[in-house]
């Protein structure tokens, strides 16, 4: 099954989904899980909270995607959602200048609260409506670069760019986690004190082949 080597481990990442009310965060997530699972009975919460098991270059990754409420009145409660996140997906609507402004605010806040540890993705959604575009590609991409984020274009409606977005994000989070690991000196055991953050769990011995390999969230 899983390639051995150095990688007998499973990464667990938390990704928080931010963006104004009508930018299509929920459709984005629904698309993403639809593609992987055709099983409709995973969990009724799946549009708000989604877990996914991925296998990336032989390493296993558990991804937990947390949706947040976009309304202004819940804004103050953001911090308890995004604390301990490894990545953030900031979604705006390319036809809505305002929503891009909101993304900028989020970026500022996240950088202030979480520093450079968190991998940021800025996502222009609804590219199927390109004729009504109000946020230029150049502006968005240069902004993303200036804040150390990556920029993506997606369409939930046409199912474009979503898979790539999350795959890319996972790879970046793995790099960050590995760099951190190296910094810590590798040998240091997972102390109980670091309760939160990246969890790198040693695999349990692969004793029973009975379970099969169909893993779903």
């Amino acid at each position: 099954m899983a390639a051995g080597g150095t990688g007998g481990r499973t990464y667990s990442f938390k990704v928080v989904l931010l963006g104004e009310g009508c930018v299509g965060k929920t459709s984005l997530v629904l698309r993403y899980c639809e593609n992987k699972f055709n099983d409709k009975h995973i969990t009724t919460l799946q549009a708000s909270f989604l877990t996914k098991k991925l296998n990336i270059t032989g390493k296993r990754v558990n991804l937990a995607i947390w949706d947040t409420a976009g309304q202004e009145r819940f804004h103050a409660l953001g911090p308890i959602y995004y604390r301990d996140s490894n990545g953030a997906v900031l979604v705006y609507d390319i036809t809505d200048e305002d929503s891009f402004q909101k993304v900028k605010n989020w970026v500022k806040e996240l950088r202030k609260m979480l520093g450079n540890e968190i991998c940021l993705c800025i996502v222009g959604n609804k590219i199927d409506l390109d004729k009504d575009r109000h946020v230029s590609v150049e502006e968005a991409e240069s902004y993303a670069e200036s804040v150390g984020a990556k920029h993506y274009h997606t369409s939930a409606k046409l199912n474009k760019g979503i898979e790539e977005l999350f795959l890319d994000l996972c790879k970046r989070m793995m790099e960050t986690a590995q760099a951190e690991e190296r910094l810590k000196g590798n040998g240091a055991s997972q102390s109980a004190s670091s309760r939160r953050g990246v969890q790198i769990v040693d695999d349990e011995p692969q004793a029973t082949p009975a379970g099969g390999c169909c893993s779903s969230g």
């Binding site: 929920t26 997530v29 629904l30 549009a47 708000s48 309304q71 819940f74």
Partner: peptide, 12 residues
């Protein structure tokens, strides 16, 4: 159809 609700609906 898929009636799953996102956080925008869930929190209120």
């Amino acid at each position: 159809k898929t009636a799953a609700i996102g956080a925008d609906d869930l929190l209120p």
